[in-house]
Nucleic acid binder design. Structure first.
Length: 584
RNA sequence: GCGGCGGUCGUCUAGCCUGGACUAGGACGCCGGCCUUCCAAGCCGGUGAUCCCGGGUUCAAAUCCCGGCCGCCGCACCA
């Protein structure tokens, strides 16, 4: 066996067809991977388990949608991605360091450079002979680094489109409609699983940093003043098998801590280590999800990102890290508190009101001060300027008006003087039936390919010199293998019948009669097939077959008529003992 | 983008320094056959590499030189 597990996994992935680099015959292109037959199956199962954990089990508060990969430029102007994704960069030709060109110019020369073209900035650098602030070397021309893939929509090149770098904007842009069809309830999670593209400068590390990949994420919208009712929250928390998570906070890191500590979700929220309950809740779900994929609890934790490490929209971010053999701790999901940033931006850029209305149980009756002014007098006195004055008055705070009138005896406004007796402040009762607000958002976001890699890394084991992929039964790409013990006509006949019936009952099934039985077991162990049904000579006598467990290599004998049910139970987690008792 | 190392059958690799008997060797895999009553058994036969791409040097290039692509590691970057 190879010493390096990563090498071994990459080799296995290529040889057996999980994944390989794209465009191989043209020399390959960095950051792109093909999924092979087994990879597609594995990924599909990883996704369907995600859907199980995040959507199905939360069907009362989460819905799933699908939106396009290509979006008009406006969307990413609003989201801030165009601004934050396009950096003018200069490189030192001597030491190779890179700098934000606009920042460097502002800092060193005191010239406002924001918004200047790259040519203008290059010109400024040349004219002032700006040099590398670190080593004093000469600087390159200013280049634009934009991680958004650009394209055009339709035949006109002016109609710019971008490939989304996250699925999130789809949920924000369509929030109003989804909220509407979900009968205007909060909290509301909108989930989406889809492909995204990021034009990384130098993708590395195989499947871990791709230019095109799949994200599974939820934008979870809630009322910031009343994120969740206690009842609902406890109902959800009580369903978690484990309420503790391992986290490493920025605060702890500042103290020099390097190891995460364990804390109850509720406590973390109460202590304000996690800024909003929903962020914490979804982190706990993420923990369960990764655990179901075969990652031990102590092989993962949540790492809080420092403000400068966070994305532009985030008020708090935790990365879910999982340990893998080669790279150490890698990020498989990010959990960000996006506040009302995205919806506010889309309100501003689209002009749509994306606020939600929440009706109070009882309308609030508040006494409110109102300003009344003598329109006739003001009109007569100020004539054509009256309209302007009215508008200014309507913007005034009654309390302040009272104060001014008190102090000066008149109100000075819009260049006019209005005497005390022309203005009245009255108190009126108002019924407030509810409030309008911009929901806040907690976002759990998963990189599916990274999960896929982490799952393989954790499943990969070597037993007696043979590779056994101990994938959780639920995510194994192939469910069950059917083998005739030897190439005996009668045995083969029975085996093929069982194979067909398993296939017709929804299992991904392999049938193999080539080579020795040991070799066939080895072949399916290597790709993680959890169960193998073997038909032998005894089968011909008493209609029983054996079910073999990939992980223990133990077998139990069951009746042929029970094969489908037994395999189903086994895949759902039944032990061989369970199977023996039920079907043996 | 910079620096270091690397790229040979499906996979892993030998050969490269020191150019030529390399018709590029091996192992595993894969395909066909024989054998086989439960864990990569054995035997026989077969398949498979324009040596990453392009250019150059040379009588002659897998081998030397240049450029590109790709990979890994470090730096930089990283929603």
């Amino acid at each position: 066996m190879q010493e390096d597990k990563h090498e071994a996994i990459m080799e296995l992935a290529k040889r057996r067809g999980f994944f390989w680099q794209s465009y191989e015959i043209y020399g390959g292109v960095a950051g792109f991977y093909d999924l092979g037959p087994l990879g597609v199956r594995l990924k599909e199962k990883i996704i369907s388990l995600w859907r199980e954990f995040f959507v199905k089990k939360h069907a009362h508060i989460v819905v799933e949608i699908e939106t396009p990969i290509i979006a008009p430029a406006r969307v990413f102007e609003a989201s801030g991605h165009l601004e934050h994704f396009t950096d003018p960069i200069v490189e030192c030709l001597k030491c190779g360091r890179k700098f934000r060109a606009d920042h460097l110019i502002e800092e060193k020369l005191g010239i406002k450079a924001e918004g200047l073209s790259i040519e203008e900035m290059t010109k400024i650098i040349r004219e002032h002979d700006l040099r590398c602030p670190v080593c004093g070397g000469p600087l390159s021309d200013v280049k634009l680094f934009n991680l958004l893939f650009k394209t055009t929509i339709g035949p006109y090149s002016s109609n710019t489109g971008y490939l989304r770098p996250e699925t999130a904007q789809g949920m924000f842009v369509s929030f109003k409609r989804v909220y509407e069809v979900s009968r205007k309830k909060l909290p509301l999670g909108i989930a989406q699983i889809g492909r995204v593209a990021r034009n990384e400068i130098s993708p590395r590390q195989g499947m871990l940093r791709l230019r095109e990949f799949t994200i599974a994420e939820i934008e979870f919208f809630f009322d910031p003043e009343e994120p969740v009712s206690d009842d609902m929250f406890h109902e959800l928390l009580d369903q978690l098998p484990r309420r503790k998570i391992r986290i490493l906070t920025v605060e702890a890191k500042k103290r020099g801590e390097e190891k995460p500590f364990e804390i109850d979700i509720e406590e973390a929220i109460r202590e304000r280590l996690i800024l909003t309950p929903w962020l914490g809740y979804w982190m706990a779900v993420a923990q369960e999800y990764m655990h179901a994929l075969g990652i031990d609890y102590d092989e993962m934790y949540f790492d809080e990102k420092a403000p400068e490490e966070r994305a532009h929209y985030s008020a708090q971010t935790f990365d879910q890290l999982v340990r893998v053999s080669r790279y150490g701790w890698i990020e498989v999901s990010g959990h960000s508190y996006r506040t009302d940033y995205d919806l506010s931006r889309h309100m501003k850029y689209s002009g749509e009101d994306l606020r939600v209305f929440k009706q109070y149980k009882e309308p609030l009756v508040v006494k409110k001060k109102h300003l009344l002014w003598d329109k006739a007098w003001i009109g007569r006195t100020y004539r054509s300027r009256a309209r302007e004055i009215f508008e200014a008055l309507s913007r005034m705070n009654p309390e302040e008006v009272l104060k001014q009138l008190e102090e000066k005896g008149y109100l000075e406004i819009a260049g006019a003087k209005i005497p005390k007796d022309r203005i009245k402040v009255i108190e009126r009762e108002e019924k407030i039936t509810g409030k309008r607000f911009i929901p806040h958002v907690a976002e759990p976001s998963f990189g599916v390919e990274r999960i896929l890699y982490a799952v393989l890394d954790h499943a990969y084991t070597v037993k007696d010199g043979r590779v056994v992929l101990k994938l959780p039964r639920l995510v194994a790409p192939i469910d069950v293998a059917v083998f005739p013990l030897v190439k005996d006509e009668n045995i083969i006949r029975v085996a093929r019948k069982i194979w067909l019936s398993l296939m017709n009952n929804g299992f991904y099934t392999i049938y193999d009669e080539e080579d020795s039985i040991g070799r066939r077991y080895a072949r399916v162990d290597e790709i993680g097939v959890p169960a193998a049904i073997t038909i032998d000579y005894q089968s011909l006598e008493d209609n029983t077959v054996t079910l073999r467990d990939r992980d223990t290599w133990e077998q139990v004998r069951i009746h042929i008529d029970n094969v489908v049910d037994a395999v189903r139970d086994f895949l759902r987690g039944a032990s061989l003992d369970d199977i023996r008792h039920k079907y043996g």
